[in-house]
């Protein structure tokens, strides 16, 4: 039950955003230098590399602050999140699985129709990721609220 120095959820979130912003600025500056001074003219590959670097920075920073935040909260808060992730996340994943079954059985026809209906113009892979993570996060949020309502 040992807890470390308190770090609030919003505090961790702002730190993640702040470090990501700094990382983005550094990556952007590096890209500009490579294009202006380094003779690199392929703008697309520079932007793709910058995007990947930025993503890596965000993942590392988010990981570090997630661990720090987790270590700083008490056992009931941890239990609420673990319970919410298990039940809410699993329920969300079950819904995502239904989407995937329907999309597979219909050979992507329903998926494309849904993308069109929602006005989504990105790639199918990204759409799939949203349909996986979205219900899981939604289920997680709902289950977290239920846990605290039941334990008030």
């Amino acid at each position: 039950m040992t807890t470390k120095k308190k770090i609030s959820f919003t505090g961790a979130l702002f730190r993640i955003l702040g470090f990501s912003l700094l990382g983005g600025m550094a990556v952007g500056a590096l890209s500009a230098v490579l294009m202006l001074e380094g003779g690199v003219t392929d703008r697309t590959s520079i932007l793709a590399t910058a995007g990947a670097l930025m993503g890596a920075v965000m993942i590392v920073v988010a990981g570090v602050y997630s661990i720090r935040w987790w270590q700083s909260v008490d056992e009931a808060v941890r239990h609420a999140h673990a319970w919410a992730w298990y039940w809410g996340g699993s329920a969300g994943l079950a819904i995502s699985t239904l989407f995937f079954i329907v999309f597979t059985v219909t050979d992507g026809v329903v998926a494309r129709a849904l993308m069109q209906k929602l006005g989504y113009e990105g790639g199918a892979v990204e759409f799939g990721m949203i349909l996986t993570a979205g219900p899981m996060l939604l289920g997680y949020g709902i289950a977290w609220g239920i846990w605290w309502l039941r334990h008030r």
């Binding site: 056992e75 009931a76 808060v77 334990h151 008030r152």
Partner: peptide, 22 residues
């Protein structure tokens, strides 16, 4: 106890059983 007030409330109302260390 170095926990949140909500945790104390949950224990008091017998909605949450604390760990052995707590």
């Amino acid at each position: 106890l170095d926990v949140s007030r909500q945790t104390v409330n949950a224990i008091e109302t017998e909605k949450y059983d604390p760990s052995l260390p707590l």
